[in-house]
Nucleic acid binder design. Structure first.
Lengths: 355, 355
DNA sequence: AAACAAAATCTAAACGTTTAACTATGTAAA
DNA sequence: TTTACATAGTTAAACGTTTAGATTTTGTTT
């Protein structure tokens, strides 16, 4: 079953190898009886064309390289899942290359930005060494990685991260609108003293999310007091400390928007530690909808990034580009959505509204 | 950079293609000056050998296929991470194929056992279609999948799952000893009325873990009362219901061993709902050390499977087999270890021991 | 200097496909 | 009847390597 070649099939069917090839690929018409004869031999012998030889001849590997920064990052497996789902119905395969960056990082976000050399090198390897037709680069943070992608003559799609380079394609997710939406949700629930626990403030998602917050505040005619914005570093601990400092300040918030679930959970730790209740005394919302948000108690209200769609779309663009059905500059931003759970309470101030 | 061939290098260096090949692969001695000349041209031009052509000629793809049941399963990414880590220092690549089984399953464990046909088909595709040199099959449950792996003439290593077929290699993890160890830990903490919330009782891990529990009980001269063993189905809900039924029974346990973290967390839900405290009134231990166990409150004491090692070892075996440095039947069982957190309390019965 | 052996290098076939260019066959138009 | 022209099929060259086996070069021994 393994070592049958097209010549064996041709001989057994009494035709030339070209005819067999035409039958297999449907590239040229073949008389029905001969077609059947060839097909019969193929099924009888279980022949499968040698893809390596095909690739050599056609200069196409039918393989898409996926370069992931770290498969252990929570956002990466769902993205790969989305890619797989799209790819499954094509004749492409996936070559996976894991940079395993988490292993080599202390402060995860800040250092990762400077890993350009390694990324560049692995990408060149994928394209010119492993001979993939296209590359999907799966970042682990939402950030601009334009400086890091080498200029190659094959499609490169960035997933999750973004690129400010005009010609680079990416598929990322929405931050600003969803943040505004969450704020509106808190405001509509009667909250006015809302605090924000930000991620590292110089990072794109932190900036975009803050912009969303500000927009919602403006729309509601509220003012976002600077004392109500604390800067964390995306980790649980920082959420805890930011919240502690908020609790110790002059005007305590009645609601907190932490820019990711980890910090939100840290904030909940601090609130509980202070003997207060979530959401009884303070409402909390996070961002990411990580598994943890369902296991923490009470369950965390948060925002969900449609990671699977990011992967699916990236794969689709890659394949379309390979089939020349798409030569635009694709810059896709997948909408995020709220997932309502148990950490937000309606602020009981109806008497005010009725007055 | 992309389309330079070995012939171009040969011409530029004034040697034959054979000599260039010998220099690149070190397969035959080449005079130092010529060697340098060739190397210079290669670095100057950035030439990279065409791996497709190499594969066609040598009949080796230097690619290991990974067939995963579902990349979304919590155990899979760390296994891939381990595989990557080993592979990184070899000249092999990874072709990933995700069966995405979770998507198509209602009751996850029971149905997955019957997915044999799809597995078989994808494996054949990987080996004979995609032309990989070896396959690592990454299961999502610890179970015997021997019936499902077709007989092919290339190395197949099973990771996480196992095989009862004598000739199949696998790398899995330890259940029985670690379960006994956890029991001993509870017993040493003074617990005697210990309940067990089992996973689906006909599954290998449930059976092995129960055996460990029984062993520890016997060693301690205790008897495991049948009423103290409840059968769950690995999901959170079932842990909750099992615990409720335990709490409503005649002799309430002072400690519970849930056979995975999800059920342990469900049990904690029930305990808290009953107005009791963990671990104040009832101690709880889980299994898997999933992320959730750090986010639940109090943090869950549990057992950790060394998933990364499973992947690492599987990759190592695969590569060794490809280099003919290993032709044994590898059946590796990676030890698991306890991770102590906050859900177990020493039972205050010192007065009894002192009496 | 000749004869031989060893080492270095080269030539060309092979790996298994695809496909351009050619040939053979049948059909319609002149 | 010839000519033109689709249509179906074949031949053989490529794709870019590796590697036997042939050949040349170098070194050693007489």
């Amino acid at each position: 079953m393994a070592d049958i070649t097209i010549r064996d099939i041709a001989k057994a069917a009494g035709v030339s190898t070209a005819t067999v090839s035409y039958v297999i690929n449907g590239t040229k018409p073949v008389a029905p009886e001969r077609q059947k004869r060839v097909l019969d031999v193929i099924t009888k012998t279980g022949y499968l064309p040698n893809t390596v030889a095909q690739s050599l001849r056609t200069k196409k590997t039918n393989t898409i390289g996926i370069l992931v920064e770290d498969i252990l990052s929570f956002s990466v497996p769902p993205i790969i899942n989305g890619i797989s789902e799209y790819i499954e119905n094509t004749d492409y395969r996936i070559l996976l290359n894991d940079l395993r960056m988490l292993n080599s990082l202390y402060n995860r976000y800040d250092q990762i930005v400077h890993q350009g050399e390694k990324i560049n090198q692995e990408l060149m390897f994928l394209v010119y060494g492993a001979k993939v037709d296209a590359v999907i680069y799966v970042g682990m943070f939402d950030r601009d990685i334009s400086g890091v992608i080498p200029n190659i003559n094959k499609p490169v799609i960035i997933a999750y991260s973004t690129s400010e380079d005009e010609h680079t394609c990416f598929v990322t997710y929405e931050n600003e609108n969803i943040s505004a939406e969450m704020m509106r949700y808190l405001i509509n629930a009667g909250h006015e003293k809302i605090a924000v626990i930000s991620g590292l403030e110089h990072t794109p998602p932190a900036q975009q999310r803050l912009r969303g917050v500000q927009r919602a505040f403006e729309e509601a005619g509220l003012l976002l007091d600077n004392h109500m914005v604390k800067n964390g570093d995306w980790e649980r601990d920082s959420g805890y400390h930011c919240m502690k400092s908020l609790l110790g300040s002059a005007h305590k918030p009645t609601a907190v928007f932490a820019m990711n679930d980890l910090m939100a959970i840290g904030a909940m730790d601090a609130i509980k530690e202070a003997g207060l209740s979530v959401p009884g005394d303070i409402s909390v919302v996070g961002f990411d909808n990580r598994d943890a948000s369902e296991f923490v108690s009470p369950k965390l209200t948060t925002a969900e990034i449609d990671l699977k769609s990011i992967g699916y779309n990236a794969a689709q663009i890659a394949v379309e580009k390979l089939k020349s059905k798409n030569n635009g500059k694709n810059k896709i931003i997948i909408p995020s959505k709220m997932v309502l759970r148990e950490t937000v309470k309606k602020q009981s101030c109806e008497w005010r509204e009725q007055s």
